[in-house]
Amino acid sequence: MTTFKALLVEKQEDKTFTRGITERSLDDLPDGTLLVKVEFSSINYKDALSATGNPGVSRHFPHTPGIDAAGTVVSCDNNSFKEGDEVIITGYDLGMNTPGGFGEYIRIPSDWAVAKPDGLTLRESMVIGTAGFTAGLSVLGLVEHGVTPDKGDILVTGATGGVGSVAVALLAKAGFSVVACTGKKEHDPFFKKLGASKVITRDELLESKARPMLKEQYAGAVDTVGGEYLSQAIKATQYGGAVTCCGLTASADLNVSVFPFILRGVSLLGIDSVQCPMPPRLRLWDKLAGEWKLECLDDLTEEVSLDDVSQKIDAILKGELSGRTIVKL
């Protein structure tokens, strides 16, 4: 019987949650058509919520988080993949209520997996991961809306986080002038390395937050945190611009008047990477492996082992992580 290591989150009788590395068996995995030996995963904010028992993310325990996984096919019951194929899995139910990438093996439906594009290694695919894929969808949303580099600056909120940092780099690579908004001004060199043209603080963005409209400052924005930061981004977007929305770490509430929408024609674009249909999913992975491939992937990344994941979960909940943290299984 094959056994493997995994991070296991358990619910205690007093309704607290504990986590630790334990030995699991393939028999512990759910039914599925695809068995994958995981080589790399990554740490996302949603993983931290799952690892601390947030019922909006994970409801069934014991549980192994990890919403990202990249690895090698061990077996496939429906011949969608063959043994030895390299695959990427992000989104769907992986790491939420299905055991995820913080284990050395996963078993999933084969239609959750994407064949790794030739332009990426498994490691690079997890530097991108759900965060980078979400950033890519956000940039694609702006581009398809007609936002072009000649129209002005693009604001990125939560720019030190996984989605924000990749969004800064992708926008810069696409030729946009990027304004990175952060609560960590000491990371200026990090943003400049990613290609940001300017760095502003959260306090600067939140100036005059009581006003229903602000000066037209941005051609568009990628908001990763929600709440009043998203409100300010909408109010400061110029006529015909667009703002993408993909996060809620600041707040799930949106307090903004209709004025930016009916007086400036600003569009709010919702971004979901979990249930993104397979055709656009495949197209975006091809872009991320090709014309949008980032040369600064290593600058974004810290690599840790499975033994380090619990510590990094604590750090991401405290807002202490920047860029991307990948896990080598």
Rank of each mutant, 00 (worst) to 15 (best):
V114Q: 11
E10G: 02
D68I: 04
P149L: 10
T244P: 02
S41N: 01
E10C: 11
A233F: 01
T224E: 09
V225L: 08
K5S: 13
V179T: 15
V256F: 13
T98G: 07
P260V: 11
T22A: 11
T64W: 03
L329V: 04
E186V: 00
R283T: 14
T134R: 05
T182K: 08
R211T: 13
G323E: 07
E291G: 10
P109Y: 10
E83M: 07
A167P: 10
N97S: 11
T64P: 13
D314V: 01
A180G: 14
P55K: 11
T22G: 06
A236I: 11
T130M: 02
E207S: 12
L171H: 10
T301V: 14
I67F: 08
G103C: 08
K209D: 15
D272I: 01
I262R: 03
K293W: 10
K193R: 13
D223M: 04
G66K: 07
V73E: 01
E204N: 13
T130D: 02
L155G: 12
D308R: 06
P277G: 09
L321S: 03
K185S: 15
V143D: 00
L206Y: 11
F17A: 05
V156S: 10
V225N: 04
A289N: 01
L206D: 09
T121D: 02
D314W: 01
L230F: 09
G319Y: 05
L254E: 05
F61P: 00
E207C: 03
S257E: 06
S267M: 14
G100Q: 04
A6N: 05
V225Q: 02
